[in-house]
């Protein structure tokens, strides 16, 4: 009669063997191993692009927690990226703090800001949260410009981390592994959240706020938790970028475009799924790099017209994203390739 959903108490090792035994499982493992070996044969330029993929990917994964799981349309997440980047730049450069202290300050400030913005707006309808987050990122941009003596103004600031750190991230191969590891960590966090109480509550809020409240979910509180976690992870990406890029600028950090990109990447990949933001980043960041650096200028803007059209068409005809659209590929792989025991 009733079939129960898998609640098996298999040993963890057993589960892993089973997951890896499936074709999609061992193929993923293969991709992972190839990725690990990449620095052996990839050029420095390709490694650089991949590092950018990781940094943007962290932001997209972070966005997916509040936007995808929670359904709360944050359009100002770049402000946290900016907090992370500027905390590192200012505290390391001007106050001689260590990188880790500076990064921690950036993350804490971001969490505080998330609570400050989330608390009032989460009780209002969705539009107001989106608008308030835009106001915050734009307002911060102007503030950074206004306090130019302190922040470096419109030109920005170069970052000179301690020499050991500069040596580490200056080596593309080592930098690749560092960012790959942090990216992986963020994927683990995102996976853990999805199956935690926070994750279930966020999904419930996204699906039906009243139903969630009736089930005892303090909707405002859990939205704030989700937003704060999203903010912390985005600040991490910003702080890491500051040492890698050794340069921060207000238009790059406190950018509405970047904020929208996090959302867009996640949408293209698949909102609310664990791998959506990852697939979206792998797909979009290289294309964007190509469009802006290779095409550039006028042809670039022609490409952006196409981008806008694609975005509109996707949202009208395929809002569930690539992951769901392409799930048949995974099924095909699982069905055609043999299982390994």
């Amino acid at each position: 009669m009733s079939q129960k959903q898998q609640t098996s108490t298999d040993s963890i090792a057993g589960k892993i063997t089973k997951a890896v035994g499936k074709p999609s499982g061992y193929l993923s493992l293969l991709v992972f191993l190839v990725a690990l070996a990449l620095p052996l044969f990839a050029t420095n330029y390709i490694l650089h692009i991949l590092i950018l993929v990781f940094i943007t990917g962290i932001g997209a994964i972070a966005w997916n927690i509040i936007g995808g799981y929670g359904g709360q349309f944050a359009l100002g997440n770049a402000v946290f990226y900016g907090f992370g980047a500027y905390s590192v730049a200012l505290l390391v450069n001007n106050y001689g703090q260590s990188f880790f202290v500076a990064l921690a300050v950036g993350i804490i400030l971001s969490v505080l800001l998330a609570v400050l913005v989330g608390y009032p707006t989460f009780t209002l309808s969705g539009h107001y949260f989106a608008l308030a987050t835009i106001a915050v990122v734009e307002g911060m941009l102007y503030l950074v410009l206004f306090f130019g003596d302190f922040t470096g103004g419109a030109i920005g600031q170069s970052v000179t981390p301690a020499s050991w750190l500069a040596d580490l991230v200056g080596n593309r191969v080592i930098a690749f592994y560092i960012f790959f590891a942090i990216f992986g960590l963020c994927i683990l966090i995102s996976t853990w959240v999805r199956y935690s109480k926070l994750g279930y509550y966020l999904l419930a809020i996204r699906e039906d706020q009243d139903a969630a409240a009736a089930l005892g979910v303090n909707t405002t509180r859990y939205k704030i938790y989700g937003f704060a976690l999203s903010a912390a992870m985005t600040a991490l990406a910003g702080g890491m970028y500051a040492v890698y890029g050794t340069y921060v600028s207000p238009s790059g950090a406190f950018s509405l475009d970047l904020s929208i990109q996090y959302a867009l990447i996640t949408l293209i990949g698949g909102m609310g799924t664990i791998i959506g933001p990852i697939v979206g980043t792998l797909f979009m960041v290289p294309i964007q790099q190509y469009v802006t650096t290779v095409l550039g200028g006028n042809l670039g803007s022609l490409a952006y017209i196409g981008y806008g059209v694609i975005l509109i068409v996707v949202i009208i005809y395929a809002p569930e994203g690539l992951v769901t659209r392409l799930s048949f590929v995974r099924e095909w792989i699982d069905n055609t390739l043999p299982e390994v025991k």
Partner: peptide
């Protein structure tokens, strides 16, 4: 008010997590 994208079990899990 079902939580549409979630499985039947997961719908009930939300209440059970309290």
């Amino acid at each position: 008010k079902p939580l549409n994208q979630l499985s039947v079990t997961e719908n009930v899990v939300v209440g059970a997590l309290g």
